[in-house]
Amino acid sequence: MDKMCNLGQAWFEEGKEEGKEEGIVTTLLRAIVSIVKHYGVTTEQAMANLGIPENEYDKYNKLLEKEGLALT
């Protein structure tokens, strides 16, 4: 699971460098989708491995759905 954390951290830093919250959210959504597809885990497991707090899971699930990326 360390590789997933490193991947998420890299994407988080990429978004952070853009200096925009939107960039961070976009990279987190991309990371969630990638982890789910490549590792066969649930969206909740992917978010946990990315260090997203549980109280934000609903927010990201709604964003995934809104962007047409819902995985569940």
Results as ranks from 00 to 15, higher is better:
1 M>T: 09
1 M>V: 06
1 M>S: 10
1 M>G: 05
2 D>R: 15
2 D>I: 12
2 D>A: 12
2 D>M: 09
3 K>L: 10
4 M>N: 12
5 C>Y: 07
7 L>G: 03
7 L>N: 05
7 L>Y: 15
7 L>P: 01
7 L>K: 10
7 L>F: 15
8 G>D: 03
8 G>S: 00
8 G>H: 00
8 G>Y: 00
9 Q>L: 15
9 Q>T: 15
10 A>R: 08
10 A>S: 12
11 W>Q: 06
12 F>Y: 11
12 F>N: 03
13 E>I: 14
13 E>Y: 10
13 E>R: 13
13 E>L: 14
14 E>Y: 14
15 G>Q: 02
15 G>N: 04
16 K>Y: 10
16 K>L: 13
18 E>H: 04
19 G>T: 09
19 G>H: 10
19 G>Y: 09
19 G>F: 08
20 K>L: 03
20 K>P: 01
20 K>Q: 08
20 K>E: 05
21 E>Q: 13
21 E>F: 13
21 E>M: 06
22 E>A: 14
22 E>V: 06
23 G>I: 11
25 V>L: 14
26 T>N: 09
26 T>M: 10
26 T>I: 07
27 T>H: 13
27 T>D: 09
28 L>D: 05
29 L>M: 14
30 R>N: 11
30 R>C: 08
30 R>S: 07
32 I>T: 15
32 I>Y: 07
33 V>I: 14
33 V>F: 09
34 S>K: 13
35 I>T: 12
35 I>R: 04
36 V>P: 00
36 V>G: 03
36 V>S: 06
36 V>F: 05
37 K>F: 11
37 K>N: 13
37 K>P: 00
38 H>W: 06
39 Y>Q: 11
40 G>I: 10
40 G>Q: 12
41 V>W: 06
42 T>Q: 07
42 T>R: 11
42 T>I: 05
43 T>V: 12
43 T>P: 03
43 T>H: 12
45 Q>P: 00
46 A>E: 04
46 A>T: 05
46 A>H: 09
46 A>Y: 07
47 M>W: 00
47 M>H: 02
47 M>D: 07
48 A>H: 14
48 A>C: 03
49 N>K: 11
50 L>H: 08
50 L>W: 04
51 G>E: 00
51 G>R: 03
51 G>K: 00
52 I>Y: 00
53 P>Y: 01
53 P>D: 11
53 P>A: 10
54 E>K: 10
55 N>D: 14
55 N>M: 04
57 Y>K: 08
57 Y>T: 07
57 Y>W: 15
58 D>R: 14
58 D>Y: 11
59 K>G: 09
61 N>E: 11
63 L>E: 14
63 L>Y: 06
63 L>F: 02
63 L>S: 01
63 L>T: 01
65 E>A: 07
65 E>L: 12
65 E>W: 08
66 K>L: 08
66 K>F: 11
67 E>Q: 10
67 E>N: 13
67 E>T: 03
68 G>Q: 01
68 G>T: 01
69 L>E: 04
69 L>D: 02
70 A>Y: 02
70 A>H: 01
70 A>V: 15
70 A>E: 02
71 L>I: 15
72 T>E: 12
72 T>R: 13
